[in-house]
Amino acid sequence: MIAIRHPIGAMRRRTLVAGIVATLADGGVARAQATAPTIGLLGTGFIELLTVAFFKGLAEAGFVEGRNLAVARRSAEGQLERLPALARELVDEKVMVILASGGPLTVRASRQATATIPIVFAYGGDPVADRLVTSIGRPEGNVTGASFMGSLFTAKRLQILRQLLPRAQDVGLILNRKTTLAEGQIRDAEAAVALLGQTLHVFTADGGEEIDRAFAEMDRRKIGALLVGTDPTYGLVFRDRIVALAARYRIPALYDSRDFVEKGGLVSYGSVLTDTWRQAGLYVGRILKGEKPQDLPVLQPTRFETVINLGTARALDLDVPASMIAQADETIE
C-alpha cells in the first residue's frame, strides 16, 4: 500500500522532532479520541464473522473502534422495510461513512438518505447490474465498495452440485425476491439446468416462516439437491435456520459461503466473504483518511473455495466422490 510521502521539509522536520513527537505520543492519542470520527453500519443483519472482518480491515487502515473511531450500528434484522428509516438515522447522526452491508437495498436506502456521505457497500451482487455504480473500475457518486459476486456463480454451483449428486434430477433453488438478487440467479439457474439436463424448482421465501414452508414443499416434491441462492437475509439472518431445515428434511444443499458449511451445511462454493468485508473496512478507513469514493474501484473477489462438510455428508448417507474431495479446498468433519 502506498503511503502519502512527506515532502523534504516535513521529513527533515520529522527527523529533528522525532524525539519530541515520541514524548507527546500519548497526548496525540488522547486528542484523536476526542475528535474520533463516527461511521454508520447499516445492514439487513450482522453476523460476527463478517463484522470482525470489517473491523479488521478498518484496523489495517488505522481505525479502531473506541480508540479513534465511533460506530453507529443499525440492523434491520431482516425487516427490509425498516432500512430507509435506519439510513436516515445514521445521516442524522452525521456519520462520516456508511457501510451498507447486505444487498443493494441497504445501499439504495442510504443513497436516498444522503447524496454526500460516502457509502461503502459489502454484498454479493453485481453492483453495475444492480445500478449501484456505473462502472466497476470507476465508480461515480458517493458509492463504492466490495462485492463477493455470490449471485454470479449460480451455474458453477449447479455444476458442482450435479458433480456431487449425479443422480439428483430435481434441483431446487431457494431465493428471496425482495432483496433483488433473485432474478439473475433464477435466469442463470434455468440456463444451467437446461445444460445439465435437470429439472429446476424455484422457491422464493423472504421470511423465516416462508423458508419453513419452502422446505416443506421441497420435501413434498422430493427435491434431490438444493442450491441456496445468494441473499443477504439468508446469509446474515436465516443462515442457521436454513442449515437446520436442510438437515431436518435431509436435503443436500450447496451454499455460497463456507460459514453455512461450518454451521452444518453440506457444501459451499464461492469467494471468501471475509475478504470482501475486510476490504470494505479498508475502504471505509481510506475514505476517513480523505480519499474519495470515486477514486476507489469496486473490489471483486479473488479467492474462490470449495468447502465440504464430510460429517453432514455422512449424516445424509452421501458418498462424496474422491475427485470431489480432491478438488475441495477444505473438508470439514
Binding site: 500500500m1 502506498i2 473490489l299
Partner: peptide
C-alpha cells in the same frame, strides 16, 4: 523506506501497483 515498484504494459496502462485501486481503475 518509501519507494515502490509498479508495472505497466507497452501501452502504459498500469498492470501492477502497490495501490491496487489504481490498477483496478485502469
Amino acid at each position: 523506506n518509501s519507494g515502490y515498484a509498479y508495472v505497466v504494459d507497452r501501452l502504459g496502462r498500469l498492470v501492477a501497483h502497490p495501490d491496487l485501486s489504481l490498477v483496478l481503475r485502469g
